[in-house]
Design a protein around this nucleic acid. Structure first.
Lengths: 135, 135
DNA sequence: CTATTTACCTATTGACATAGTAGGCAAATG
DNA sequence: CATTTGCCTACTATGTCAATAGGTAAATAG
């Protein structure tokens, strides 16, 4: 299940995509508009900055802005930055140790198929697609 | 992410599907074959019995057996019985309270689409499909 | 130079889920 | 009646989620 963290991250990104692309937007404004605790958003936004999806600038006139154009973000990369992984089972995550049962696992083919489905879905959606939606 | 519980449940069901369909199979045997703690499996199997996916019989000669034919189980119902829900976001789970943001939510359409994708995927796969795999 | 605004940092919390373990009771059969 | 099996309650360690609290660092406006 996609957690609050990932869902909030998307809302922040959509919010930023809708603001003037040149200026920096203070987190306080985003928190007010989205009705989300600013303190909690700090944690989320920090991860988005680490992942280079956002640029943050301190001080007066500072805030956050997108590091590229909305159509250049996949929803998948935003979720992966905050959720840690989009892998559908532990053994298919990036840094999973090799499962000794893999060769004879009756369920692995299904998990792999499902994993691809999920990744393809989120990688094919862009931030711009979500901007187009209402609100 | 699908948890150990759901993955173990599938392995138990597959294991049972491969045994003689008439007799009852002791949990100890399944645990030995699958190399999973029998104690932990007790918890999982109990939930499968509650959901009427398995029938359990106590005493000598007892054990568990499928309550219907392998091709009549969807993978979805097995996972739902153990994972609680397959909903991809909280607001789309069965007993979720109505979200006040729903009407104006920019991400809801995507979540709904994703939710359908996931449910369709698991509801279209049957236990028999998994039996056919190696092991 | 100073006050203000902003991001950024560490730490803590309560609630809950995960992945088990322990020990015993109840039922069924040989 | 002993053995085998399911079934029940309880407990635990670890981790994640969703925050909250309180401070430090950087940048700008005046």
């Amino acid at each position: 299940m996609i957690s609050t963290k990932g869902r909030y991250a998307l809302r922040v990104m959509i919010d930023l995509a809708k603001q003037d692309a040149d200026g920096y937007v203070p987190l306080k404004d985003i928190a007010d508009r989205q009705q989300i605790s600013k303190k909690y958003l700090e944690i989320i936004v920090k991860e988005l900055v680490s992942a280079k999806l956002l640029v943050g600038v301190s001080g007066k006139g500072g805030g956050y802005k997108l590091s590229k154009k909305p159509e250049e973000y996949s929803v998948g990369e935003i979720l992966e930055a905050t959720e840690g992984t989009l892998a559908v089972v532990a053994c298919l995550s990036e840094n999973a140790e090799k499962c000794p049962r893999a060769a004879s696992c009756a369920t692995l083919p299904m998990w792999s198929e499902y994993n691809k489905l999920v990744h393809d879905f989120f990688n094919s959606k862009t931030l711009k697609d979500l901007m187009a939606e209402k609100q």
